[in-house]
Amino acid sequence: MNGAALLSVEAVSVDLPTVRGNLRAVDQVDLHLAAGQTLGIVGESGCGKTMLSRAILQLLPKKAKLAGRVIFDGQDLAHCSAEALRKLRARSLAVVFQDPMTSLNPVLTIGTQLIETLQEHLELDAAAAKRRSGELLAAVGIPAPEQRLSQYPHQLSGGMRQRVAIAIALSCEPKLLIADEPTTALDVTIQAQILDLLAREQKRRHMAMIIITHDLGVVAGRTDDVAVMYAGRVVERAPTQALFKQMHMPYTEALLAAIPKLETAPHTPLPAISGRPPDPTRPLKGCSFSPRCRYAAGRCESEKPPLVPAEMAAHQYACFHPIRLAADATA
């Protein structure tokens, strides 16, 4: 979009060969993220959001085929040398995963994992690395940080472990942090604390962030832009305020409606989306959401709707029968 984009994902597709045929996990996705901005990627399981994050990080499984370009800080990551990629990781590009129990090495102490990262990427000596580790743990809100350095991941609670994972991710002052479902495995009160922590650190370091989640509530108050994915494609994208004010793609609206809200009275039937997400090994010719969409008609089954802008250029949707479009709808 603008030349100052820190991350530019251009027409990225990820194909995975499986027993049942080719699986198109990500289909022609475009994304742009400027420094200091937060992008939320929302979708349910199987929509391709995790594969997309792997594609950005160049951590795809061996069998996967990547098409398109991932430009980060001016470099095309898909065509970087392994050495250049290694330098980028941790120093510029960091990631926090969903389950800290598996993203932390269970047989190494917290201190070792932090210190190793610091020594590897910042080339600090052992004493300086140890000191910095303590500071990092304190910054992420872990009480008694010096003691924690000699503890193992299983001795900490889930929330603590996620804080440690965040500390490791932030240790080398990255320019972009990708958080893949960082709070899904955590309790709701801890979730709030972790999201606050991420927001605070992001502001302090002027870091760009991508939050991947299935929860629209998580992105609502904490992101600048939101991209909604379904069956491997981005089906709607907008600045957060604009998206929640008016959703154009029926899936987004249905997703929001299907979440039980606190204001609703008990025993009110929820407006559920019927059917199931499509099988990614048998992509539909037309819009992937059409079998479940109550507005589907005509073109929806034979053509894939392209992403087109709404009256606000930054708000894009992929639908032939968008909801309440102020401008003339392409019918």
Binding site: V188, T189, A192, D215, G217, A220, F244, I259
Partner: peptide
């Protein structure tokens, strides 16, 4: 009350409240 506040509300106009309680169970 803490639980209710912590729920992420899908409404961007409602800013997440400043945490009232801290710490872990």
């Amino acid at each position: 009350a803490l639980l209710l506040e912590a729920i992420p509300v899908p409404d961007p106009d409602i800013k997440p409240a400043e945490r009232v309680a801290v710490g872990e169970p």
